[in-house]
Design a protein around this nucleic acid. Structure first.
Length: 399
DNA sequence: TCTGGGGTCCTAGGACCC
DNA sequence: TCTGGGGTCCTAGGACCC
């Protein structure tokens, strides 16, 4: 039986938070973002959007379009607090929630709605109650899969509710421009336009004909996208709490520079921040990455894997400095970033380290307690051979 | 006043091992 | 001596999303 998945998207979330703090902002063109060098629009009010202002646009450009815009730098602790209120509200209706970002979530409402006579009325009531209780506005997509729900919440804003059954896909989604397809961004969209694909319907037609050119363009995503567009994508809401896989910090310099010592000072601060955030998240990482962006916006990533995972400031800073030394050419640099990657829990490290320190002892102990495959899975990498691997090795030995 | 910062996931090529 | 296939790990780069 088809599930009922909701995608709930908070409308102009950051701006709405600011309006709730200062109601005099309501109805005015408001931009959340920085106005200095490199400043871009993080998000903006609907009034500002009427002037053509968009997320990601350089702030100076936004101000040309809308000179009276009020610019507010972000207050992220406020947004985080309101985001918690949002999630706690949704939890009252279903505990099967996947928070996709600070201002959106997927909810599996199948069970909740199974005994409800008028599900649409129930959902409308949810939307209204969220507004009454928290002041937040949202749009909601209702569908049998996460992809369709996501497309639905995007369809009508603000305070929209869009239901997309499989039979509605052609009517609702086909006329939309190809850019509105979740996952098709500003690199892929122009390529598709060049191929004569201007709408989601154009794409669906070619996909359902298994057009070889389209197949090639999407590679291994092809069948996933074919499922999405035909309403057979994933309906599994991931309720596991977010577990970060990397923690990074980057900054655009006040002035472009090529001076090693100057950039090293930035790298020091970035490393310190990364170390602190990793400690706060109780994570250690197996590799350190340095990112440099030059004055032509060319980005290079250089990373180094460590023998032992760390979140120590000095260690991170050391590796990042080595990478900087080896890769700072004569180009002027405008941005540097430091990221700690391949994060794991320190408790897992203790087990791993102890295995390498007293390998035989621990091996014997563990082998009696656990299946080898299970142990390998816990170690994240094979420490002991499974039976199949032993067989394979035997085969080579007898050659 | 040209174009942020936080992430995730995927790919491709080379090194290395069996 | 040459040939080769399968697999993993590491590194670099790129697309995309909010």
């Amino acid at each position: 039986m088809a599930k009922v998945i909701l995608h709930i998207d908070l409308n102009a979330f950051f701006v709405r938070c600011e309006e709730l703090e200062d109601p005099s902002l309501i109805g005015k063109p408001v931009i959340i973002g920085h106005s200095g060098r490199g400043g871009v629009v993080s998000t903006c009010s609907y009034k500002a959007r009427e002037f053509g202002v968009r997320s990601g646009m350089p702030t100076f450009q936004a101000l040309k379009l809308c000179p009276n815009a009020i610019i507010i730098p972000g207050h992220y602790s406020l947004y985080s607090k309101k985001s918690h209120e949002f999630i706690n509200f949704v939890k009252k209706h279903s505990t099967l929630i996947e928070q996709a970002s600070i201002d959106e979530c997927y909810v599996d409402m199948t069970k909740t709605l199974s005994n409800i006579k008028n599900p649409l009325e129930y959902i409308k009531n949810m939307q209204d109650t969220l507004f009454k209780e928290t002041g937040l506005m949202c749009s909601i997509g209702v569908a049998p899969t996460k992809f369709l729900a996501k497309m639905g919440s995007d369809y009508k804003k603000p305070m929209g509710i869009t239901i997309i059954h499989r039979k509605d896909i052609a009517r609702i989604l086909y006329p939309l421009p190809i850019e509105s397809f979740f996952g098709i961004g500003k690199k892929t969209a122009p390529k598709l336009r060049k191929m004569g694909i201007n709408t989601i319907g154009d794409l669906a037609k070619l996909i359902n004909e298994d057009d070889p050119e389209i197949k090639k363009e999407f590679g291994r995503f092809y069948y996933g996208i074919k499922d999405w567009i035909n309403g057979y994508g994933s309906d599994e809401v991931e309720t596991e709490p977010w577990d970060p896989k990397s923690i990074g910090n980057s900054t655009t310099f006040k002035f472009d520079t090529n001076n090693f010592e100057e950039i090293k000072e930035y790298v020091r601060e970035l490393s310190k921040e990364v170390s602190e955030r990793a400690k706060e998240a109780n994570k250690v990482g197996y590799s350190v990455q340095l990112v440099l962006k030059d004055d032509n916006f060319k980005v290079i990533n250089r990373s180094k894997k460590l023998n032992k995972p760390t979140n120590d400031f000095i260690e991170i800073f050391d590796i990042a400095t080595q990478l900087l030394e080896a890769n700072l050419g004569d180009k002027m640099i405008r941005l540097a970033g430091v990221t700690l990657q391949n994060l794991i829990d320190p408790s897992e490290v203790v087990i791993q380290m102890s295995i390498f320190d007293n390998y035989d002892e621990i091996k014997e102990e563990c082998a009696t307690k656990l299946l080898i495959a299970e142990l390998n899975r816990k170690m994240k990498k094979p420490v002991f051979k499974t039976a199949a691997e032993t067989l394979r090795d035997k085969k080579y030995e007898t050659r």
